[in-house]
């Protein structure tokens, strides 16, 4: 039988090709569940809080006319800038994130460098020891520090029994506890990219430097560090960006004076039920982090290709 084939336009054929269908599965998922939600955050940040369910005014008002009128207000943003609490929280988060990134880098570099230099037969097990805490619950690891740092905790008990101090130190509920918690929790995120980079390093370059009379410390600063820069950058982004919005650590280890924007957002949302202000806090935090996130993405793409 001679049936005339139905002609499918070329652009439709292309759009529904197997290749595009495969791409579209994860693509559409991420568009709908990762990107689209931000539109709602933006929308609600422009609404006003009211006592209702959901607790914000609607963005579109359906009136007589065919098109809805848009009713948005910048009140939430103006409020953020008028109250010094929010600006201080952003600045304080920035300070805590920068300092803890530097601390994590120094400690992480020492560990990653030593693992990379360790005899080959040890490296596997050492790397496993780094990865294990990375997989272990964040919450549990932060919780573990409460018992150590609190006034009648294990650290004070140990220090008093040795005789180093006679009155317990107040570490719990201070910024110091937050720094300890952040460095501890994020250390594996720093060590892994650093190690991946240091392990691949061409040792002959270091030998060349030594042969030409370069002292070990100078070789480290002028050869090793510049060569490991991609690892340093990846590690710093992996620590800095999430720490900017960290909630669990300042909430459990920090005190009432520890201001971090992630905690402010949580309080606005869950305790004050001010969804528009919580959304505005999120939008500004996102705006601050967009550039670091894009730099991180570029660095990662480069590293993999």
């Amino acid at each position: 039988m001679n049936r005339k084939e139905i002609q499918i336009p070329n652009f439709l054929k292309k759009a529904f090709s197997g290749r595009n269908a495969v791409i579209s599965i994860p693509y559409i998922w991420l568009l709908l569940l990762f990107l689209l939600p931000f539109i709602f955050v933006l929308k609600i940040s422009l609404a006003e809080p009211i006592l209702a369910i959901p607790p914000y005014t609607s963005f579109f008002k359906w009136g007589e006319s065919w098109l809805p009128t848009i009713q948005g207000s910048l009140d939430s943003y103006l409020f953020l800038f008028s109250d010094s609490l929010y600006i201080n929280a952003y600045l304080s988060s920035l300070k805590i994130a920068v300092i803890s990134t530097v601390l994590t880098l120094i400690i992480g570099y020492a560990i990653a460098y030593s693992v990379a230099k360790a005899p080959t037969r040890w490296r596997g097990i050492l790397l496993m020891l780094v990865i294990l805490p990375f997989w272990t619950s964040f919450l549990i690891r932060v919780y573990a520090w409460i018992g150590i740092l609190k006034t009648e905790g294990l650290l004070n008990l140990a220090l008093i029994s040795i005789g180093i101090i006679d009155k317990p130190l107040t570490i719990m509920n201070t910024d110091l506890a937050v720094y300890i918690g952040i460095v501890y929790s994020y250390l594996p995120f720093m060590i892994l990219p650093l190690y991946a980079n240091l392990e691949k390093m061409d040792m002959s370059l270091l030998e060349a430097a030594a042969d030409l009379g370069c002292r070990p410390l100078k070789t480290f600063w002028t050869v090793t560090i510049p060569l490991s820069l991609p690892g340093i950058l990846a590690g710093c982004f992996l620590v800095f960006i999430p720490v900017m919005g960290e909630f669990v650590i300042p909430d459990l280890l920090g005190g009432t004076n520890t201001l971090m924007i992630g905690k402010v957002l949580w309080t606005e949302f869950f305790y004050n039920r001010d969804w528009p202000v919580a959304s505005a806090v999120a939008i500004i935090l996102l705006a601050l982090l967009v550039v670091p996130i894009m730099l991180y993405q570029r660095a990662q793409e480069k590293a993999i290709s």
Binding site: F34, P242, F247, S279, A282, M294, Q297, E301
Partner: peptide, 17 residues
């Protein structure tokens, strides 16, 4: 971007959105 961003983005932002 949508693959890499969720790995570093603060959880409070992802959760809220």
């Amino acid at each position: 971007g949508m693959i890499y961003a969720p790995m570093v983005m603060p959880e409070v932002i992802i959760g809220l959105s």
